[in-house]
Amino acid sequence: MSDQLPSRVLICDDQEMMRVGLRMVVESQPDLTVVGEAADGFQAVDGAAEHRPDVVLLDVRMPGLDGVTAAGRIRAAQPATRILMLTTFDFDEYVFAALRAGVDGFLVKDAPAAEMLVAIRGVLRGDPMVSPSVTRRLLDRFVTAGPGPLPDARLTRLTDREREVLGLVARGLSNAEIAARLHLGETTVKTHVGRILSKLGVRDRIGAVVWAYESGLSRPGETDGRPDRPARR
Rank of each mutant, 00 (worst) to 15 (best):
R161C: 09
P112N: 06
L58I: 10
R226I: 11
V68N: 01
D152H: 11
R100D: 08
A231M: 14
A38M: 03
L182E: 09
G194Y: 04
R23F: 08
R226K: 13
D46P: 05
G167M: 10
V210H: 01
A38L: 06
I206W: 06
A231F: 12
A113D: 14
Q4L: 14
S215P: 01
A180M: 02
S131C: 11
G21A: 14
V56M: 04
T191V: 14
L22M: 14
S2F: 12
D228G: 10
P132G: 08
T188M: 00
A97M: 10
T191A: 14
A208H: 04
F91S: 13
I11D: 05
A98G: 15
E214H: 12
P227C: 09
P79W: 10
V108N: 12
V35R: 05
A170V: 00
Q43K: 01
G122P: 02
R19P: 07
L84V: 07
R121K: 07
G225F: 13
L168F: 07
T159Q: 08
A70I: 04
W211M: 03
A176H: 01
R137T: 11
D127P: 01
Y94W: 05
E214S: 09
A38P: 02
T69D: 11
R19D: 10
S28H: 15
V130Y: 09
L200H: 02
R82Q: 13
I178Q: 02
V56Y: 05
I74Q: 03
R136M: 14
F96P: 00
A98Y: 03
P6Y: 05
V210D: 01
L58G: 03
P30S: 14
P6K: 07
A38Q: 03
R73Q: 15
G67T: 04
R154V: 02
M18K: 03
E37P: 04
P6W: 04
R205C: 07
L155V: 11
L217A: 10
R141T: 15
G167H: 04
T156C: 12
S198G: 09
D31A: 10
R82T: 07
R82A: 15
V45M: 06
V45H: 05
V143Q: 00
S174R: 01
A208M: 00
V209R: 04
V95M: 06
I120W: 02
P132C: 07
R136G: 07
D90W: 02
P112G: 02
G216Y: 10
C12S: 14
A176W: 03
S7D: 10
P230A: 03
K199W: 09
P151T: 08
T135L: 15
V118H: 06
V55R: 13
G64W: 00
R203T: 08
D46W: 01
V123W: 04
A77S: 14
A212P: 01
R23M: 13
L184W: 12
P6L: 04
F142D: 05
L197V: 09
G172H: 08
G47N: 03
D104G: 04
M116N: 05
R100S: 08
L10H: 00
R73W: 12
D40E: 09
A76S: 11
P227M: 08
F42D: 10
